[in-house]
Amino acid sequence: MDTKDLLIETSTTLFRLKGYKGVGLNEILKACDITKGGLYHHFPNGKEELLIACLQSMNETITNDIVQIFKRNPSALSASQEMIEKLIRQFDQEGTIAGYTFSSIVSEMASLSESVRTACYSLFARMQEIYSNKLAEDGILGEAAASIALMMNASIEGAIMLCIARKSSEPLRTVLQELPKLLKMP
């Protein structure tokens, strides 16, 4: 793995665990065993530029996983159920849902930096686009598909945060149970 990829991978993990503000530059440098010069070589604008690279990497990883799940399922409902069941299994096994949420970064940084807010929004928008496209395949079109996709995204992201806060997968289980009602909307 090259230095840039190491910085992104390591920093992504640290940001998810401790938040952007909770991770110092020296901690990143130590974890990657590199110098400040090495970091600034790849990210001349420093920690915020590194965060944006981490968000872009998460965007790619998360959306690729969602796309694969939605491709192999015949409906938005079955795809969403598979995705939520995967999240529940991960939470029950690991006590957290690493790699599928970045809401804590959004709430911590989006009001401070337009470039970070834009990077975060990009992932939410891509997820909603995937959901909306599958809903369109199911015959739910236009604004209805867009509204339902937004509700799905908000419900799943919110449930992930509640799972972490409650130390229980119950919020995701509730979304899984209620999702069929949402997807029967005209």
Rank of each mutant, 00 (worst) to 15 (best):
H41Y: 15
H41C: 10
F43R: 07
P44Y: 04
G46Y: 03
G46P: 05
E48C: 06
L51Y: 02
L51P: 01
I52T: 03
A53V: 03
C54F: 01
L55Y: 04
Q56M: 11
Q56N: 15
S57R: 09
M58F: 03
N59P: 00
E60H: 11
T61A: 13
I62E: 10
T63D: 09
T63G: 07
T63E: 03
V67R: 15
Q68L: 07
Q68C: 04
I69P: 00
F70G: 06
F70N: 06
K71H: 10
R72G: 09
N73K: 14
N73P: 01
P74D: 15
A76P: 05
S78A: 06
S80V: 02
Q81K: 13
I84S: 03
I84F: 03
E85T: 09
L87E: 07
I88Q: 10
I88Y: 10
F91I: 01
Q93W: 11
E94N: 13
I97M: 07
G99D: 06
Y100W: 14
Y100S: 08
F102R: 14
F102Y: 14
S104G: 08
V106P: 08
S107M: 14
E108Q: 09
M109Q: 14
S113F: 01
S113Q: 05
E114Q: 14
E114H: 13
S115D: 13
V116G: 04
T118M: 10
T118S: 15
T118D: 13
A119Y: 04
C120R: 06
Y121G: 15
Y121K: 10
S122E: 13
L123M: 13
A125M: 11
A125S: 14
M127T: 08
Q128E: 15
E129R: 12
E129S: 11
Y131F: 15
N133G: 05
K134H: 05
L135P: 04
A136S: 13
A136I: 10
E137R: 10
D138A: 06
G139E: 04
G139W: 09
I140H: 03
I140L: 11
I140F: 02
I140W: 01
G142M: 04
G142C: 06
E143I: 14
E143G: 07
E143H: 12
A145M: 07
A145Q: 09
S147G: 12
S147D: 10
I148W: 01
I148D: 00
A149I: 05
L150K: 10
I156E: 08
I160Y: 00
L162T: 05
I164V: 08
I164M: 07
R166F: 05
S168A: 08
S169T: 02
S169F: 04
